[in-house]
Design a protein around this nucleic acid. Structure first.
Lengths: 225, 225
DNA sequence: TCGAGGAACATTGCATGCAATATTGACGCC
DNA sequence: GGCGTCAATATTGCATGCAATGTTCCTCGA
């Protein structure tokens, strides 16, 4: 390795976690193309780590469903069909439904305040046209609501499923009209959460996801043709 | 290692999957005690593989929540509290709820017949007092119903969550009265599925799990004192 | 020209070696 | 005797080497 190697090396004990996250980002951002094979050697050089932690990351990402590993051939980025994503969204809706009702019962005042604050920051990001910030704050809000249900298993599964299809949900708000409606929906969501109206919260979230996915699906199908 | 203890070696390309399954079994069967540390060297010798696939398995099991890995210290079997298990069951119920309604709509006649056949075999296992066979057939039935929803993401997540808490659900049917009721509940479940009554199926499954967990929780709390 | 066969090459799967870190246990001090 | 300190040992994290397998591409015959 040359003297100028610029990547900060991940500390001992965290390499495979570091690499998993990096490669997941490369997949969800589209930097690694769906359907393409992933060459270990290339990534090892890019990320400045050895093959061992990289292969551990591959195993984890395979379990997540982002890549597929064929013995003696290697890792391939899984191609998601629109139906695959829709299936995941259906699961996400189901998980949030459980979460919403419990969250309305069990959330602390601090958690409600935190969601409210995230919401305000998200609206600010919307006003500034910062799509990326908006997107992350959006994700945080949904995760916080689920976390407020105080069910660790639920939080875990929900977070994993979100990570899988991150890339596809991102596309929904490219359409300005949809984006604006989404912000409005989130206002209702925040209010229902603050008032602990579990059943309403559940339905608002469901409708929000259905509408968001419809827009995203449109965007993708338009892009494909 | 003595001369006679040669395990059949897992074929190239499947070692880490093989080891993952083996170690998962060792945990869910209680062979590896909750809270205890796992020594790599010992397992490597027992399973007759090298450290590389074993460590890949550890990473996967950590992700599943069965072990926890501390850098430079190693893997520890996670101790589940009753509340942890209850949280997972809540998730399972939610996932099956989504699945049940979809399955009732989308199941093929062949799938309905298959569940019915599994049911008959399960009843036979009950009659023969074969708890282990019963348990596996039981699991298969639930998984098949979920699979009939034709949602791959759902099937995956459901299977993973089942695997995590397998050990704890096993305890429910040790009580003869509960076991007998469970069989009766399963009859209703089979019929509702056969008649494609989604809402009913969902509620039967929910009640079945709630009752099963209540019995299992009792059994564990009794065993602990 | 096309396709079968096979040698050269590339890539992967796994075992192992080495350095970093934790754990154990002996020793001296209070 | 209890406790802090430090050396000896055990264990882990990662890099790397080697064998097994897949892939490429050249040759040769029809």
């Amino acid at each position: 390795m040359t003297a100028g190697s610029k990547h900060l090396e991940a500390p001992r004990g965290t390499r495979s976690a570091f690499v998993t996250e990096r490669v997941r980002d490369m997949i969800t951002s589209g930097q690694l193309e769906p359907g393409s094979r992933i060459n270990e050697r290339v990534l090892v050089e890019q990320l400045n780590i050895s093959r061992t932690p990289l292969r551990e990351a591959f195993k984890l990402l395979e379990r997540e469903g982002l890549i597929s590993i064929r013995p003696n051939v290697g890792a391939t980025v899984v191609v998601f069909t629109m139906d695959d994503v829709e299936a995941s969204i259906e699961v996400l809706i189901g998980l949030e439904s459980i979460g919403a009702e419990r969250a309305a019962e069990r959330a602390t005042e601090a958690e409600i305040a935190e969601v409210s604050e995230l919401h305000d920051r998200m609206v600010a990001a919307y006003g500034a046209g910062e799509l990326m910030d908006y997107f992350h704050l959006n994700q945080d809000i949904h995760q916080k609501i689920v976390d407020a249900a105080k069910n660790p298993a639920l939080s875990r599964v929900y977070a994993e499923e979100c990570a899988r299809i991150r890339r596809f949900r991102f596309a929904g708000n490219r359409d300005q009209a949809r984006w604006s409606r989404a912000v409005h929906e989130h206002e209702q969501i925040r209010d229902a959460f603050a008032r602990r109206e579990g059943a309403l919260l559940r339905e608002l979230l469901r409708a929000h996801h259905v509408a968001g996915w419809k827009a995203a699906r449109h965007a993708f199908e338009a892009a494909e043709s």
